[in-house]
Design a protein around this nucleic acid. Structure first.
Lengths: 218, 218
DNA sequence: TAGATTGTTAATCGATTAACAATC
DNA sequence: TAGATTGTTAATCGATTAACAATC
């Protein structure tokens, strides 16, 4: 007759209902702060302490976590190692994801050499560019490959995540190739909204947007 | 007796009440899309078209804009040049802000050489680092300066905006120096929450957070 | 005029907070 | 036990959407 509901929840940490994207967006921030607490040698924390460090109310943290299970102990708080592990499972970063980087400009260079991905669930395994002057050149520990080989490589390796660091003018056409080849998540540094079919996620990073957001208050 | 309320609104485009931060955060995205429409040679658009391009409802766009004035014409839509100008005024990017960059690593290199700031209201005018091997070296069109001279330079030039591209371990102490010297807005690429006093704004960019957000859905 | 689209109101929807029983 | 903190409920708060009169 299959698993009981309770068993499944214990085994998979499936959310009871559909959890809103705004809540999912906070989980990586909780996880990051827990990592810092662990590095400080701490073993236990509370929703109050976590909230104080993050500028979030303790009630919100407890409510967010409650969508996925009961991870704390009344009177005590949360075991940092345990909660971190659960968050990694929920976010599916209890494994290492291969990431393909497209664009070998200054930004691609910075990303390929960034030490912050590994240990957080991500490994940049290949870099592609369409500039003949860049193809074949080393970039960090990788060699820049020809963009025309992207579809084949993505399909062969089954890559699901891409980082897009190409000019705005090329972003949509590269995206079409990525999606067509099987990419399901794109971190887009190009300052344009991408058109993608349902089932493909995009996150945007544009420093100009953030700067203009702040100047409003100056 | 001073200005009438209507005159002030026409002259300053002050919001009628306090406008929520979530609305302010969308304005730069509207402005960016309007710029693309203008580049395509378009002169008029509608809340419907803008919404379709951005994946936002037309009602939301009209409501957001209505907090600041009446920028459209019934039956016609919005004049792209006019609305862009108004948004630049509201966001205070109808001028060019000097920006100081702290951190001359790979990321600092990418930021200093990024052509997307100028024309959007920002100009990186100086780069600082504390690494003796980097101080004095050229970075794009700039020369890396010694971090110990940061306070004096910020005060002398009256810089208000900083981009932080230093390791996480140094971010808070650099922030303290920046704030103490007069910086009021920080774009933080270090993966840590910064403690700043009221009146200082921070925006965060951390690719790991965005990637972990997306893996939830994979 | 007829058609289109704004600005705004009221209704809906969703997120956050406050409070507290449960319990470690 | 007494004190502390969770998980959850109900209340509040705020954001989004639908609808439409106004009007270009």
């Amino acid at each position: 007759m299959g698993m009981h509901l309770e068993e499944c929840e214990e085994a998979c940490f499936m959310a009871k209902g559909k959890v809103s994207d705004i809540i999912i967006g906070r989980l990586p921030i909780y996880l990051r702060e827990l990592t810092y607490l662990a590095e400080e040698g701490r073993e236990i924390t509370s929703s109050q302490e976590l909230g104080d460090r993050l500028g979030i109310s303790s009630a919100q943290i407890r409510k967010d976590l409650s969508h996925f299970g009961e991870f704390g102990k009344q009177g005590t708080g949360y075991h940092i190692g345990f909660l971190s592990e659960k968050l990694r499972e929920i976010l599916k970063v209890d494994r290492v994801w291969d990431v393909v980087l497209v664009g070998a400009g200054y930004l691609g260079h910075a990303l390929a050499n960034y030490g912050g991905f590994i240990g957080k669930g991500f490994n940049i395994v290949a870099v592609f560019d369409n500039d003949p002057a860049k193809i074949g050149q080393p970039l960090g520990r990788l060699i820049v490959q020809d963009s025309k080989d992207l579809p084949k490589a993505i399909k062969e390796h089954g890559w699901k995540i891409a980082i897009l660091a190409v000019p705005a003018s090329a972003a949509q056409e590269v995206t079409d190739v990525l999606v067509e080849s099987g990419i399901r998540a794109i971190l887009n540094y190009a300052p344009v909204i991408l058109n993608v079919p349902p089932g493909v996620r995009v996150q945007y990073i544009d420093p100009v947007i953030d700067l203009q957001h702040m100047t409003y208050y100056l």
